[in-house]
Amino acid sequence: MLKQLKPRQQALLWLLSGLLVLSLLFSLQIGSVAISWRELLLALTGQAVSEPLTQTIIWQIRLPRLLVAMLVGAGLAVAGAVLQNVSRNPLADPYLFGLMAGAGLGATIVSIVLPDQLISMALAAFLGALLAVLLVFIACMGNRLQKMEVTLLAGVAVSFMLSAISSFILYFAEPFAANRVIFWMMGSLSRTDWHSVALIAPAVMVLLVVALAVRRQLDALLLSDDSARSLGVNTQRLRLVLLLLTALVTACIVAQCGGIAFVGLMVPHMVRYFMGVTAVPLLLGSALFGAIFMMWVDNAARSLLAMQEIPLGVITSVLGSVFFLIILRRQLQQGG
């Protein structure tokens, strides 16, 4: 697959891979406890460290968290790229089915209505996200997902409906619980551990592999549905499978990390700008760039304020929107 790429695209992918490894090493050093490079390397290679706490902090706190950050970034970016290409709509976004609102509702119900610790917040958020997807699919059943605009609009409607219910519940909630739910919805990786890695990794991998497997079909869809169909692509089935997969991946991510806006919308656009529209470079580039981007966003979230975390969604939105506007601006200027 890689051999088909242009030298420039290959070079960019290698560059991103290198940056990913460097970012990971660098990020492992960032945190409220200072750890020297020597200790870090010793701990990573499993050798005895003078301070057993270092081992715990690196292996139990920082590494799983960074891996989740990478998976979340890659997952959201790939989901966004797939959805944008499948729908030929540049505004398609992994949260398009009202997933975030559904997950928010699940989290709200579990932390406010249900008795303490009946089911975990992550599971509830996951179920809520699935509920949103189900509602959208039911609403769109008639046109069999042929008209993506209808799907997008149904997503918006479901989104509003579910967040209205959440708001209603939050209104009666005790303020601390309400604040926590709202903070959770802004996105955070502070709760992530190896279980989160085990939950998200398979979903993201499956999406990436499936999307790469149907790379030719995805490219054929870039022209038009009719044109793809005349090449033997079952556009309906392809869409359904990919929509469900992206929804599943996003639901896993939202359940573990709350709402992380803008990554799925923006990263694919930036990658497209540098690497072109076809599936292979776009998907690989999005996965790598999304992972790097998310790691640095989390680093910022962890270290901008001493001893406190800034919600991830806030940072992704700020960084994302600015970067996005710059690229738009440059594109406009180039276009004439």
Partner: peptide
């Protein structure tokens, strides 16, 4: 030192303080 806000605990910092 401060180790938490209403939204989250800084687990790393808490662990480090033993």
């Amino acid at each position: 030192p401060r180790v938490n806000s209403f939204a989250a605990l800084n687990i790393e910092a808490i662990l480090a303080l033993k």
